[in-house]
């Protein structure tokens, strides 16, 4: 036990000797500093490329930085002008609303409900049917986002597969991307995202001990009751964390919407990430785009804190 002098020992801070001299404690703090050296590359990269942009985001949103011209090389401090402009811009509340609708409908409601139902159905259904359908659903999820976006574009366009199917039953469908852009991107996101929740819920349902549901069954609880009062409460934790996770992912979704509709027609599917991109790079107003990004960051941070609390709640 006395051999813990220079070589790193596994639990040094646990065995704290109250009698130790200051020389020894200084060496100890030096050792613990040396031990943290392997963290340096990670901290460096994250400071430069993650913390840096966040801090810049707060400052840059207070300037008139732009892509070209004088304001590109020497941006001026303009205070909260970008934010006043943002809150006065009718596009902003519309984008917030569209982002909320997109996230709420496609992630919170549809992906959770569909993912959970799929996981439950897989438990009931024939093994082979479950495996084949599971593969199809996961396939949509594995596809690179840009490919998924093209596939969805082809599916919903005027001459696309959806209208082809509708014409079989004698309906003449519109160009969904133009007439119902939000509906199209929401459906596309459900199609692409269902697999993620499905897999997590499958894993969670597998962890529910069968004795418990069996006990409820013997007590006379029907299928629906067992689900509501036994199974769902047992996987409540997973539901909360998955919900937060997909909410965070969906809030910042860019590629799918950008490729399918480009935010149009006339900004009718411009969610916040698309708006920030357009303002910053199309209209080369980096400062204004950064202000939108900062708002998104604040929303994301708020959700993250809720998520982390939900994650740790039952463990502590």
């Amino acid at each position: 036990m006395t051999a813990e002098v220079l070589t790193p020992s596994p639990q040094p801070e646990l065995r704290r000797d109250p009698e130790e001299g200051s020389r020894r404690s200084r060496r100890r703090s030096l050792t613990s500093l040396i031990r943290m050296i392997p963290l340096v590359p990670a901290i460096f990269l994250m400071l430069v490329f993650l913390a840096g942009p966040i801090i810049w985001s707060l400052w840059g949103s207070l300037t008139d930085a732009s892509l070209t011209g004088r304001a590109a090389t020497d941006p001026q401090f303009i205070g909260v002008d970008n934010y006043t402009r943002l809150f006065a811009d009718p596009l902003f509340p519309q984008s917030v609303w569209l982002t909320v609708v997109f996230t709420l409908v496609s992630a919170v409601i549809a992906q959770t409900v569909l993912g959970l139902s799929l996981a439950l159905l897989m438990n009931k259904a024939n093994k082979k049917v479950g495996a084949v359908v599971g593969t199809i659903i996961v396939a949509a999820w594995i596809l690179p986002e840009i490919v998924a976006a093209f596939v969805a574009y082809a599916f919903f366009s005027q001459d696309g597969t959806l209208n082809q199917m509708l014409s079989v039953v004698g309906l003449d469908g519109p160009n969904w991307l133009y007439s119902f852009p939000m509906l199209a991107v929401i459906c596309a996101n459900i199609w692409r995202g269902a697999a993620f929740s499905m897999m997590i819920y499958q894993a969670a349902l597998n962890d529910v001990p069968p004795e418990i549901t069996e006990a409820a069954m013997i007590d006379g609880a029907g299928g629906a009751k067992r689900l509501i009062y036994v199974t769902l409460p047992m996987i409540r934790q997973t539901i909360t964390t998955t919900l937060m996770l997909i909410t965070l992912q969906t809030l910042s979704l860019f590629t799918l919407i950008f490729v399918m509709t480009g935010g149009g027609p006339s900004n009718n599917s411009t969610t916040l990430p698309i708006l920030a991109y357009k303002e910053a790079f199309r209209f080369s107003d980096i400062g204004y785009g950064t202000a939108i990004a900062t708002v998104m960051l604040a929303v994301g941070a708020a959700f993250s804190i809720v998520y982390i609390r939900a994650l740790r709640a039952p463990k502590d």
């Binding site: 979704l253 920030a276 950064t290 960051l297 998520y307």
Partner: peptide
Amino acid sequence: CLPITAIMV
């Protein structure tokens, strides 16, 4: 949890 698209600008 950080939304990467939000920090791209």
